[in-house]
Design a protein around this nucleic acid. Structure first.
Lengths: 164, 164
DNA sequence: GTCTATATAGGGATAGAC
DNA sequence: GTCTATCCCTATATAGAC
């Protein structure tokens, strides 16, 4: 709290005009992040076949997360510091996001364009793979964000068993 | 330190007969974990074609990490609490592990059994996907560990562009 | 709305007795 | 090798002045 206050330019006590306690502040940060993620995702058109929707999801996920490294870092590293009720809320929001990907995968299987046995596990695997970009990507690196999107899209397409 | 002492059954001060300070204790935990991982990996035979070696790596990684949830949790969540020199050591060990996978992928490309453009990125993507199992797998769940290995091996094989 | 001051708690680490 | 006791620092949160 003192560090936040310092960077904002006030004393620690002054922060309590804006949050009842530290837990509420952390929870709001994480819930806002998840709300923003779901809202941004909802704005993307969900038309087209499963292959196109999966490509859109892949590129969206990488870009949205890379542009918000601090929020993503907190969303993962501070999960353990949420009180049980708050944790449940964040987990539910995360589940919503995962469900959208799972739906795309199920549709793709039904369409015959994806070949996989467990859409639920596949959705978790894909999201873990994509979010992993945040651990190594640097804007000054050898790859542009577009390069990264394309590399990962190739791997995701293969992982779900889409015809080459 | 008080919590560790309590679970061991001694007072906090007594721990300092075994570690000079908390940072050293954390560093030793993490270094031992990485040493154990590399040693266990080195014991697996590295013969055969790239496809077989990749399957072995995939199954090994999932199983080794699932059997050590606490160490893996610490290895990821406490990275930010390592002092710079200690951090560098852990990162070097992690890089060794990643390099082995990268080598398998390069060999597979050379053999013509894998089709991917960036073995380095692919190795990071695969490891992120595999380590993600630790966030959701529960021994009492609907899938056996062998089921999980097979599901992920199918996805890894696809992600690296191995012929179906 | 911010400040200073402070209550309260907890953690890392050390000293010295046994 | 462990204990008790304690030093010192930091942290969250509150109270009351301005």
């Amino acid at each position: 709290m003192r560090q936040i206050a310092g960077e904002v330019g006030v004393q620690a006590g002054a922060l309590y005009n804006y949050t009842p306690d530290k837990q509420s502040l952390l929870f709001r940060l994480m819930r806002d992040h998840m709300d923003g993620l779901l809202a941004a995702r909802a704005e993307r058109g969900d038309g087209g076949g499963a292959l196109d929707r999966l490509e859109d999801f892949t590129r969206f996920h990488i870009r949205y997360h890379i542009e918000r490294p601090n929020e993503v870092f907190i969303a993962y590293m501070e999960l353990r510091n949420l009180e049980p009720e708050n944790f449940a809320v964040i987990e539910r929001l995360r589940g919503e996001y995962e469900s959208e990907l799972e739906g795309i995968l199920r549709d793709g299987v039904a369409e015959g364009v994806f070949h996989l046995t467990d859409p639920k596990i596949a959705s978790l695997a894909v999201i873990a793979m994509l979010t992993g970009v945040n651990t190594w990507y640097r804007p000054q690196g050898r790859l542009t964000l577009d390069d990264v999107e394309t590399l990962y899209w190739d791997m995701v397409r293969g992982a779900v068993g889409a015809a080459v």
